[in-house]
Every structure is written in structure tokens, then in C-alpha cells.
Amino acid sequence: MNPVNFTQAHLGMLLWAVLIAASFFAAAQVNQAIDPVLLTALRLLFSALLFAPLLWLKGSSAMSLAGLRAHAVLGLLLALYFGSLFEALRYTSAVTTGTLFTLVPLLTLVFEGWLLPGDRQPRRWPAMLVAGAGALLLILKGGAPGQWPSLYAVGVYGLGCLAMAAYSPLSQRLKANSLQGCSPAAMTFWNMLFGALFLFAASLASGGWRSATLLGSQDLLWLLYLALFATLATFWLLHRAIGVIATSTVISYIYLSTLLLTLFHWLWLGQTPRTAEVLGAVLVVLGMVGLVQSSRAKAATA
């Protein structure tokens, strides 16, 4: 039984959207010359280690072999997503990856229908499409016309988006089987630990680990901030909401983060809103309202 109710889960995901939006500014403070795969591995590892004492005190550190296999699969999905993102950014722009990411909630809805079939799913498609279209308008504001993205980058990041789309529905599916009774804290700890291990392995294989010598004290402080607020807190809130809110709606809160970033540029940086951006913001709000109204998970899985 999930310890939070429907309203608490949505409020938690609202906080999730705020933390995700703020993480982009914090991540920009870290030395960009350091291998991004290594940085992400450190973020995940720091986040897992921050949870370790809590799990130890609660006596929930033990895990069965089947449970470890399940967490390894989920950790691998995280590693595939982050690894594909950094590989794609070597060949294309952040605008392209941001545009592709708008497909993740839609793909999550597809995986949800496969892994968690239910009669509520068709009700979410219209709202999902509206919110996705709005986010697309917000992201494409920085796109340069006439420039086609690298097919290699699109293919690589496309696989990563599939991995991220499968993460939430598969988490919910495994919670009903090998991870039954696993708390949000334990899910966050083990998934991040395995994700960190896979990313460390990728960094070793690519030679990116050598850039660790560039890490300064300020970089470590920002990494700890990101580990605590942008990684640990957000993944805990994610797993806290899964099972109370439909998984496709949970991941759709990324659209709200996109809207918050746009509002920041309008209100604090003094950028003049464009017509497409205003329309996109309206569509995101309307789509999210529709998703909230139709996002109650089935009582049997809550």
C-alpha cells in the first residue's frame, strides 16, 4: 500500500517539476570539461549513499537475488538514458534532444498499455497530446530553421528515450512481483546504485574517468546539491507517486518543468514572450489539467 494519497502524490510531483527545472541552472555551475557520464555516475552514487544510512536504520537494506536483478534492470535503463543523452549531445543540439524528449510521456503511455493494461488509458491520450504539443512549441523556440539533426544522434537518443519511457511502467510492474513491498526510498537507493555502477563502467571504457582530476571543491559541492535535490529527491518523489498516479502522467510532469523554465526566462531574465511560446504555455497547462483529472491509478495497483 502506497503511504500517500492522490493529492499528496500530485503535490509531490509539482515539487518534482520545480526541482527538475532548478537542476538545469545548478548543473551549469559544474566544470563542463569533466566527462558528463562520470558526473552523472557521481550524482547517482552520491544520491544512493545519502539514502544508505536511512535504509540501514530501518533494517531494509537486505535484498533478495530476484530483487537485485530487478533493480539492476531498472538501473540499466537509467544508465542507457543518460549515456545516450551525452552521446547524442556530441553530434546534435540540446534543442533536438529536448524535442525528442517530448515523446517520452507518449512512449510511456504505450509501455503502460503493454505492461500495465487498464481501461483508463484511452482517457489520457487527448490530454497527453495537448501537453506534448505545448511543450514542443516551448522547446522549438531555440531551434534553427533548415538544420537537420544527425541521424546517428537521433537514433542513439531515441533508444535512450525508449529506456526512460519503460522505466516507470516497469517499476510499477516489478513492484507487484519481485519488488513487492519495496519502499520508495529502497527503490531510489538500489536503482541509483546500479545506474551509477553501469555509468562508471561506461566512463572507464571511454576513458572519461581521467577527467576526474579536474574536479574542484566547488564542483563537488554542486554535485552534492544535485545529488540531494535534483536526483535523490526527484527520484524519491517519482517512486512515491508511481502507483497512486498513472505512470504516464507521472513522467508528463516534465512538461511542467519546461513551462517553469520558460516562465523563468520571461519573468526573471526579461525575455519577451513569443506567440508560439504563449500558445505552448496554454497548451501545457490545459493538457496537465486534463491529465490530473484522468490520472488516478486503478485501486488494485495503488
Score class of each variant (00 low, 15 high):
R124P: 00
W125E: 00
N177I: 06
Y253K: 01
L204C: 11
L220M: 11
A276T: 08
L237K: 07
G195D: 03
A26S: 15
A276L: 09
L38I: 07
A52P: 00
A79E: 01
A72T: 03
P145H: 04
T40K: 09
V110Y: 00
S294W: 12
G132C: 10
G160C: 08
Q147I: 09
V250D: 02
F235V: 07
A201E: 07
G118I: 09
V244Q: 12
L42A: 13
P184F: 13
M13F: 14
T92K: 04
L223M: 14
I139R: 02
L68W: 13
G132R: 00
A233L: 14
M128P: 06
F82P: 02
S60I: 05
L162A: 09
F101H: 09
Q8I: 08
A88P: 01
T272S: 15
L116M: 08
S93W: 10
G98T: 07
Y225L: 15
Q218R: 15
L179T: 13
A302L: 13
L136N: 00
F25H: 03
E112Y: 06
G83T: 11
L57W: 12
L267S: 03
P273I: 06
F51R: 01
I20V: 15
V4R: 10
R120F: 13
P117G: 01
V154G: 01
T258I: 15
L50M: 15
L107P: 03
V244M: 05
E87G: 00
H10V: 04
D119F: 04
M164K: 01
S168R: 07
L50D: 00
F24L: 04
L283G: 07
Q147E: 14
M128S: 15
T275L: 14
H265Y: 06
S248F: 10
T102W: 06
G158M: 06
L76I: 04
D119N: 15
W209H: 10
L215R: 07
N31A: 09
T97C: 05
W125D: 03
P53W: 12
Q172H: 14
M13R: 02
H239D: 07
I245M: 12
L65W: 15
A196H: 13
G280F: 07
Q172A: 15
W125I: 11
H71G: 00
S203H: 09
F24G: 00
R123Q: 10
Y152L: 13
L228F: 12
L259D: 10
V73W: 14
R274C: 05
R124M: 11
P169T: 12
L42Y: 01
W190G: 02
L214D: 04
N5R: 12
Y255K: 02
P53C: 10
V73F: 13
G195H: 04
L44C: 14
V73K: 08
L89V: 09
I242P: 05
A241C: 03
F51D: 03
P105F: 11
